[in-house]
Amino acid sequence: MIKFTSVTKDYPKTGAALKDATFHIGKGEFAFLTGHSGAGKSTALRLMYLADRPTTGEVRVSGFSTNRMSQREIPRLRRRLGIVFQDFQLLEERTAEENVAFALEVTGARRSTIGPRVMRVLTQVGLASKANQYPRELSGGEQQRVAIARALVNDPLVLLADEPTGNLDERATRGILQLLKDINASGTAVVMATHDLDIVRSMRAHLVELQHGMVVYDSAEDVTERETASP
């Protein structure tokens, strides 16, 4: 599903953000990318949705390889991904419903299918009753739910979430986490970058820990750890 093979990413100004990183996230998995800020979590996610390409090594996502992919193919890959950010990235002047519909409209979905699909995901994230509200009228947790609904509306294979709970209080965090678990249970893989160890410890999941751009721990490689960690 997502495969990093000896991936190094150098940024001209700040230096290496990832060094020789190798890990694999399987189909339908729930995976955490964890580590301190600056450890390379966001870089790893950016490589997954092709906002950047690796300096050396290869990233494969759902059959697409960073080494053989043209710029024109990127939109095709992104339509199979759902992407969620810490700061929600909603359009302020559009309602929740319009924000979600936007993702379908700009990818050329048929008009008649948009309404029902939008309502389905808004119901899934528990916001059907607030479809006509604007982001500023919603709480942080609700805004993140709208962002998740937008990420889900194209039926992605993977949901990529970069610190999705970073701006939320504890209660909202638990809610979002539960939502992500439910999404994962219905078959969508989830890759969540977070520095919050409480979240990581709160559930069983594939765990990849980064430090200074290097993979220092991968629970998939560590059979004993996975067994002892399992309650």
Partner: peptide
């Protein structure tokens, strides 16, 4: 610019944007 960024993230083609 925000709109453009979001369009790109959800997979809109450059021509469409």
């Amino acid at each position: 610019s925000r709109e453009i960024e979001i369009m790109r993230l959800v997979g809109a083609t450059d021509g469409f944007i």
